[in-house]
Design a protein around this nucleic acid. Sequence first.
RNA 1: CAGGGUGUAGCUUAGUUGGUAAAGCGCCGGGCUGGGGGUCCGGAGAGCGCAGGUUCAAGUCCUGUCACCCUGACCA
Length: 420
Amino acid sequence: MVGMRLSQLFTKTSKTVPADETAKNAQLLIRAGYVYKEMAGVYAYLPLGLRVVENIKQIVREEMNMVGGQELIMTNLQRPELWQQTTRWDDEIVDIWFKTKLKDDTEIGLAWSHEEPIMQMMQQFVQSYKDLPTAVYQFQTKLRNELRAKSGVMRGREFVMKDMYSLHASAEDLDAYYNQVMEAYKRVFDRLGLGNDTYVTFASGGAFTKFSHEFQTICDAGEDVLYVHRGKNIAVNEEVLDEAVKELGINKDELEKVKSAEVGNIFNFGTDKSEALGIKFVNEKGEQQPIYLASYGIGITRLVGVIAEKLSDDKGLVWPEAVAPAKVYLARLGDSDEVVDQADELYDRLTESDVEVLYDDRDVRAGEKFADADLLGIPYRVVISDKTVASQQYEFKARKSDDSQLVGLAELLDKFGIAE
RNA sequence: CAGGGUGUAGCUUAGUUGGUAAAGCGCCGGGCUGGGGGUCCGGAGAGCGCAGGUUCAAGUCCUGUCACCCUGACCA
């Protein structure tokens, strides 16, 4: 679906926001018709919002494939036994479980994480050092029974996360791969337009984690507090500030305190988790060894919120080209034959060249079209009206710019990489 | 989970000392308009979160309950 006529799109924009929504990201996404709130912390993604989600996923997918990740998808229903082996079925230890039962009273869990099941599944295929290393990942809906959802789509009870797991025969091999993924993550955030404000931080890990790195994006709506040294590109999570400062040999006073959102995290489990789950491989000498494991997460839908939050202005959303639901907002003003013909023609021309375009062919006033173009946050706007037709030009404007320019067809097409 | 706040039309809201629900946006029909959510006329649309109670009478009072929001706690 490269193009879309707004007259056909079922969602519509709104001038008001639901009174119960105070998070900026959710207000904008709801007003623009990108998401629909089902209940606290649970949002549906409508056509335009889904495109944003898919665009983010695609960037992540490309980078994960680049480091050899193999995509799969696990299940949302899980067996308690696996989690009992690592003590994580216990509500005292993991307090966000949604648990339910089968008709025969068998207890099952709804996936809040896939670490245990995915490791168990991998054991079926990985037995020898010849099978290692390997890495698998998925885009998965996680269900977490959060006591309190907040910050719009940034902390939901149901959200999409990319989680990758790598399996290795040695700590050295794991470390090398871990660093490769860290670089891949940096490329992801660069491509999403968040690179400058996203830091790899030192943070505390969970029960099985020897080391943990978080990817934190500076964002007022975030939940974490970060101490940042922009010059040295260092950031430390508040929870481990004292130890980290000591270890890094930096002065606390040099650090700037900011709020941030955790958009990614990577964990090195060493062999702890595989030992708990009894996951082994056979080495060259025929000896049983525990597999070295690491996991790597990126909050896909949280990123939608972070981008909406950070890159918007008083007129609405401002999507980076890489994630925008369309590249061009084609506003047709008026319905004279000349205008309609030229707009239809350009729409066809763009979509045939795989330029994603939202074609505002609705019978509404110019002001409404401009307001919607801004609210929806489409990177470029092209206007076709009696005026532009008369001058044989097209009006072109970037969402981020206040100025528009009149250009001829060749120049316009060139802006979208199309040769006339 | 603790504390606080709020539930009235699809959305934002108004509703007096209790007297039988009002407006704007949006929507439908039509006129004038036609480059920043324009304007005029005419419509449809809620029985007030839910369940009880008090009262001749409850959106307004009482009890309970649910949901949502905020602050904190929590945050593999």
